[in-house]
């Protein structure tokens, strides 16, 4: 498998990259790691005219913490996220998800920004970012905008990124005390795309009830989405297996899986229930720890 002819640039700074994206709008494709993009180029299912490789642009691959949020550069690799102890301490869901993506080599090179911008419905980050109510920072030559992850994933391989824009950062609000988060992924074999993935973040109030909650689902709709019906069922309620089962069932009812090699829709709906339940339980366990 050989890619079609393509041009390649490696801009030295963000400004240059954004200028190229604007000048070559519609023809340029951002290359950030490439483990999603290269296979498509080799299958010739994507034939952009020019690849804009972000590797030389400084300051896009860090993980930092402000008083309010965690900021992850778009070029941060899955490996970097997986191995960031500080991040895992506040948002263990990030380690759960990063550790299950692809295989070790893919984790070494694949980036969160690349994965989010690619928006494969079976990729893990989009559901996680919706569960934790992340924001996505988009830059273009004309400026910057920050959009919520919820609503960003429009459709299969389609996001709210405009052609001349680039994803530069992910911002995740710091969870309140007594929060817990977890990602549960069902896969056919190590390294496979998710059959179903469920992301959950729970915050307990002083009364022991669920004060805030986020649930995101992978691979069971045209785009990963926030399971708002499940969230509604959980918010304000006292956590427990029975409640989690009900909420998981609500998540399942909100899913729209398709039949494919990972299984028929009926199986996937059942697995949404199971994985959501497991994610909620794990998140609660962490909130109480």
């Amino acid at each position: 498998m050989i890619p079609a002819a393509v041009d390649y640039v490696r801009p030295a700074d963000l400004g240059e990259a954004l200028r190229i994206l604007k000048e070559r709008e519609g023809e340029a494709k951002v290359l950030s790691g490439g483990y999603s993009l290269l296979p498509l180029l080799k299958l010739r299912l994507a034939q952009p005219a020019i690849l804009v490789d972000l590797q030389a642009i400084g300051g896009l691959d860090g993980i930092s913490r402000t008083d309010d949020d965690i900021r992850i550069g778009g070029r941060a690799t899955h490996r970097r996220i997986l191995e960031d102890e500080g991040l895992a301490a506040v948002l263990p869901i990030m380690r759960d998800a990063a550790g299950g993506i692809g295989d070790p080599q893919i984790r070494n090179w694949g980036t969160i920004g690349g994965s989010v911008a690619h928006a494969d419905p079976s990729a893990d980050w989009p559901a996680v970012l919706q569960a934790v109510r992340a924001s996505i920072v988009l830059r273009s030559a004309d400026g910057e905008r920050v959009v919520p992850a919820r609503g960003f994933f429009i459709d299969t391989f389609q996001t709210g990124i405009e052609p001349a824009e680039m994803l530069t950062e992910i911002r995740i609000p710091l969870p309140a005390p007594k929060s817990g988060s977890a990602y549960q992924k069902l896969e056919r074999r190590a390294g496979d795309f998710s059959t179903v993935g469920a992301a959950a973040l729970l915050t307990l109030g002083a009364d022991g009830r669920i004060a805030e909650v986020g649930v995101g689902l992978t691979a069971v709709a045209d785009a990963p989405f926030a399971a708002t019906h499940a969230e509604d069922a959980l918010r304000g309620a006292r956590p427990g297996d029975e409640l989690f089962r009900e909420a998981a069932a609500a998540a399942s009812r909100q899913s729209r899986p398709a039949d494919d090699a990972h299984g028929p829709a009926e199986y996937k709906r059942a697995m949404v229930t199971e994985m959501t339940f497991r994610a909620l339980r794990a998140a609660l366990g962490r909130a109480l720890a």
Partner: peptide
């Protein structure tokens, strides 16, 4: 035709 930038 295609989805996103995946086209033929």
């Amino acid at each position: 035709v295609g989805v996103g930038f995946i086209t033929a």
